[in-house]
Design a protein around this nucleic acid. Structure first.
Length: 925
RNA sequence: GCCCGGAUGGCGGAAUUGGUAGACGCGCCAGACUCAAAAUCUGGUAUUCGCAAGGAUGUGCAGGUUCGAUUCCUGUUCCGGGCACCA
């Protein structure tokens, strides 16, 4: 019997479907385990080979845990709201709901072919009303809550209203917002109008309205996502893009900064992931300091983490959009300032920070150093951002590299306050130097001077210690159509929550996706919508994905987003698998939502994901052709280096479909037929009769023509081979370009295993003979290794382990059931179809899906004596026969220094062997 | 620019905790079986010197710590991810 993967895979997929083999119950006597994938955005391009990498890893782990006796929740769904579907609608006139469903169906058929163990009864789609009903409901909970800084948790805003009526807001001052803070008494509060009261409450709500800048494109009449802006102009059409202030919804994530930091200590994310989140939150300890502007009543307030350097301040830098700029610019500098501000307005934050060229403009104003009265010039520059700190810094060129370069560029004299520690050619950011030229701080180590200055500025009332966060409140509205509508009604400029019983507030069908007046969302063009005074913005992509892991637990519940007893049972996600690209977006927002739901008592845990496994990105290996600018001639890659084609600007570099390229050689005929004959007239300048393409590793994407569809590979080799090959490719965590060569080896392995059980022409060759020591050794070392590899998510080495085992058993001509059957069970997570077929073939009627994982017995693999290699100073090598009893540790190598070997050779007795972590590292004589 | 990763044979990668670098697979070379091919099997395969035995070199680059470094530290180059409205 031959290994007919097609027949086998169809047969078992149908069997499992008909028997609901993957259905999971919310009640079980087994321990629970929750394995989750980051659900995909169903793009029109379909799944490419990069998607399943993480899905296969999580499927293997789920199935493994199931063999280990766990009740495993392993669901899948779709993150179905988002910009690309809307963009597609604008270009092709297909309603996003229609294209999204098509895309989902396509994804589903691709996923089904790979043989995942998802419980599809629990599928969620974020764009469906019965799902986003609860997204809207959670939004309302955010809207109706505030962060009580005294209890450090979210609480109902109603309690705040009561308190304001009786004692004002003394106990609960207004949190940091983009608006001016205010204090008021009970009588103030009771005297306020409804509008005034609601405006104040808005300052406390966890979901609140404010004003924020967006990318505004006048020519397209729309707000653009950062992705749609390239080099300061719109991607479509290349029109200018400017910053525009619009009313926006925000989530007050800043209130949770400390708890989001603290929570990192309780979850198993990689250190680098935790670091990225911590850096994003960006907690710093510093001080706000006030400087008088000479000849004016204006006060310039800066935030600094280094108040100790106050006497080294040689200039101030203010963000160009800081309001104070208008008030302090003077005389002949006004025109230049205006011009510079206009320039900055056209630049994105990213461009501003990444700019290598130093730019800036003197305002004409001087700030006065309160400690020595020195006049300090005030500059503006794009590298200072309005949103961070106070939007102004004090620049200390001897201690900060960027300040140093700025000073050099503009010829600002530099004051040295750290003596020899500053060499005059580069800044030194040390905190350990002794201060010089620093008045009352002279002789102090900088690190210690910080507290001294802080005390002094508070005493003089010119500053205050301040904990600052880089993180800003999360913008939570989009001027788009394809997203969750906000359950908010506006009356007289006041936002009122929709009654929860009226949810879901369904997204209406629109005729046109173009934006409303003044850049409002497309919903503003629907009279029935605006006549009800409903909010016209929609929620961003991350709304639905911030809580979906909860809905999987109880997906059909119409009473609540997830029953508390159910979420208490499944609790946290035990293993979450997904890419690092979500490090600071999705992962931070879902942690926030979880904490709020926990505070309000809706769930019993405040961190959603116990363990995060980051899957690397499978990149595409793109291929390029080079067209001579303005012609139809294509030059082969290596000829480009020749003189006549040398300059880049003479060539257009075009992506070509990787399927038309064999290695690097272009199939010229296929290219001519490509894209309906767009290049039919192409002429080629060849080398050795071949057209050689250029290559680059890039993100896999339809527009780069470098995608590989898993269907092709499943068709050719079967799902089991495909699964194992994706794992064999390398560590799950590692990014790598896709390469299909090598898949044959994995396929050969499966065929070889097959032949251990079923031989061509012979049929079943398995027997019930008792295994010998050699065979048992192979089996048990394999059990140990597979278990270890799986537990540490090292699926690539696990695949190798299987290959070694099958090779060894083949060499031993072992066809014994007692050895082969455990091997087949262990293979189930990796290659479920062939495992099921073989398990069945050797006479088992019960399902291999629930077979117990084989138990490792160390007695089959250990030996009583062993010859140990001895390494001396890492050079000379010899061996030494030692009995295991004498060493009683798992020694792999004995290591000795020259000195010790000398003594050993002289016959001196060794008194003590020193072991470190199971390895002998030294000998005491 | 800032933050986080990565770099090992012709190729993908292994080396789990600082201890024999190159497991396993691909590719390639040679052989067996075959009229032939496919499939399968066996042996070889880091570089270099050598008929061989054996020697030297070798984990992006430059240093450092250590008896011993792919692994730890400092600096550096290149590549990838993120940088707040792609998801």
């Amino acid at each position: 019997m031959e290994y007919n993967f097609k027949e086998i895979e169809q047969k078992w997929q149908l069997f499992w479907k008909e028997n609901n083999a993957y259905q999971v119950s919310n009640k079980s006597s087994k321990p629970k385990f929750y394995v989750l994938d980051m659900f995909p955005y169903p793009s029109g391009a379909g799944l490419h080979v990069g998607h399943p990498l993480g899905y296969i890893a999580s499927d293997i782990y789920s199935r493994y845990k199931r063999l280990k006796g766990f009740n495993v929740l392993h669901p899948m769904g779709y993150d179905a709201f988002g910009l690309p579907a809307e963009q597609y609608a604008i270009e092709h006139g297909v309603h996003p709901a229609v294209s999204t469903i098509q895309n989902i169906n396509n994804f589903r058929s691709q996923l089904d072919k790979i043989g995942f163990s998802y419980d599809w009864d629990r599928e969620v789609k974020t764009c469906e009303p019965n799902y986003y009903k609860w997204t809207q409901w959670i939004f309302l909970q955010l809207f109706k809550s505030f962060y009580n800084r005294q209890t450090q948790k979210a609480e109902s805003i109603d309690s705040l209203v009561g308190l304001f009526g009786s004692e004002g807001n003394l106990q609960h001052p207004v949190p940091n917002t983009q608006f001016a803070p205010a204090t008021f008494s009970a009588s103030d509060w009771n005297g306020f109008s409804e509008k005034q009261q609601q405006d104040i409450l808005m300052e406390y709500r966890l979901a609140f309205c404010g004003y924020g800048e967006v990318n505004w494109c006048e020519a397209l009449g729309t707000v653009l996502a950062n992705d749609e802006v390239v080099n300061g102009v719109s991607e479509r059409g290349g029109y200018p893009v400017v910053k525009k202030k619009l009313r926006q919804w925000y989530l007050r994530i800043t209130e949770y900064a400390d708890r989001l930091l603290e929570g990192l200590n309780r979850i198993e994310f990689s250190e680098s992931m935790k670091e990225m989140q911590a850096n994003w939150i960006g907690k710093s300890y510093g001080a706000n300091m006030k400087f008088k502007i000479a000849g004016s009543n204006e006060i310039l307030e800066v935030y600094t983490t280094r108040p100790d350097t106050i006497f080294g301040v040689d200039f101030m830098v203010v963000a160009p959009e800081n309001e104070i700029v208008e008030k302090i610019k003077t005389g002949e500098h006004i025109a230049a300032v205006n011009e510079y501000v206009a320039y900055v307005k056209s630049r994105s934050e990213r461009e501003r920070q990444a700019e290598k060229k130093i730019s800036g403009c003197f305002t004409g104003a001087y700030a006065i150093n309160p400690f020595n009265g020195r006049e300090i010039p005030v500059w503006i520059s794009e590298y200072v951002l309005a949103g961070y700190g106070t939007g102004a810094i004090m620049a200390v060129p001897c201690g900060d590299e960027r300040d140093f370069k700025f000073a050099n560029h503009f010829g600002i004299p530099i004051t040295n306050i750290i003596g020899d520690a500053f060499n005059g050619t580069e800044a030194n950011a040390t905190k350990d130097a002794v201060l010089n030229n620093s008045d009352f701080l002279n002789g102090l180590v900088m690190r210690d001077a910080i507290a001294v200055v802080n005390e002094k500025i508070e005493e003089l009332g010119i500053g205050k210690k301040k904990v600052n966060y880089k993180m800003r409140d999360a913008a939570f509205s989009r001027q788009r159509y394809w997203g969750e509508p906000f359950p908010i009604i506006w009356k007289d400029g006041i936002a009122y929550p929709l009654d929860e019983s009226k949810l879901p507030l369904e997204l209406p069908v629109v005729e046109s996706y173009s934006p409303g007046p003044e850049g409002e969302g497309p919903l503003a063009n629907i009279p029935e919508w605006t006549s009800r005074q409903l909010e016209t913005n929609t929620m961003p992509g991350y709304a639905g994905s911030s809580w979906y892991f909860l809905r999987y637990m109880d997906p059909h519940n119409n009473e609540t987003f997830c029953d508390r007893t159910v979420s208490d049972y499944w609790n946290q996600v035990d293993l979450y698998v997904g890419g690092t690209e979500h490090a600071v977006g999705h992962l931070l927002y879902s942690r926030l939502w979880t904490k709020v739901l926990f505070d309000l008592g809706h769930i019993g845990f405040d961190e959603p994901f116990k363990k995060l496994l980051n899957q690397g990105m499978i990149q595409g290996s793109s291929r390029f052709v080079y067209r001579i600018n303005g012609t139809n001639q294509f030059v082969s890659k290596t000829l480009i280096t020749q003189e006549e084609f040398y300059h880049d600007n003479q060539l257009d570099k075009l992506h070509v479909d990787v399927s038309m390229v064999d290695g690097f050689e272009l199939d010229i005929n296929a290219f001519k037929k490509w894209r309906n004959g767009e290049y039919a007239q192409a002429e080629f300048i060849l080398e050795d009769g071949k057209y050689i393409c250029g290559a680059e590793v890039e993100k896999m994407s339809k527009s780069k023509f470098n995608t590989v569809n898993p269907n092709e590979l499943v068709e050719k080799y079967g799902a089991d081979t495909f699964r194992m090959y994706e794992m064999f490719l390398g560590p799950v965590e590692q990014s790598k370009p896709w390469d299909t060569k090598g898949i044959e080896g994995v396929h050969r392995f499966l065929k070889k295993l097959w032949r251990l059980i079923l031989e061509d022409g012979k049929g079943l060759v398995i027997n019930n003979d008792a295994p010998n020591a050699a065979e048992l050794k192979v089996l048990h070392k394999t059990i140990k290794k597979i278990e270890e590899d799986t537990e540490r998510y090292s699926f690539n080495t696990a695949v190798s382990t299987f290959m070694i085992a099958v090779n060894e058993l083949s060499d031993l001509k072992c066809h014994k059931r007692q050895v082969i059957e455990p091997l087949v069970i262990m293979l189930t997570p990796f290659a479920p179809h062939i495992a099921a077929e073989l398990y069945h073939a050797i006479g088992n009627n019960e399902s291999v899906l629930d077979a117990p994982f084989p138990i490792f017995d160390a007695s089959y693999v250990t030996e009583s004596t062993k010859e140990y290699p001895v390494s001396i100073n890492g050079r000379l090598r010899t061996t030494m026969n030692v009995s295991l009893d004498a060493i009683q540790a798992d020694v792999e190598l004995m290591v000795m220094s020259n000195e010790l070997v000398q003594k050993w050779m002289e016959g001196k007795p060794m008194k003590k062997f020193i072991f470190v972590k199971g390895k002998m590292i030294n000998v005491v004589v």
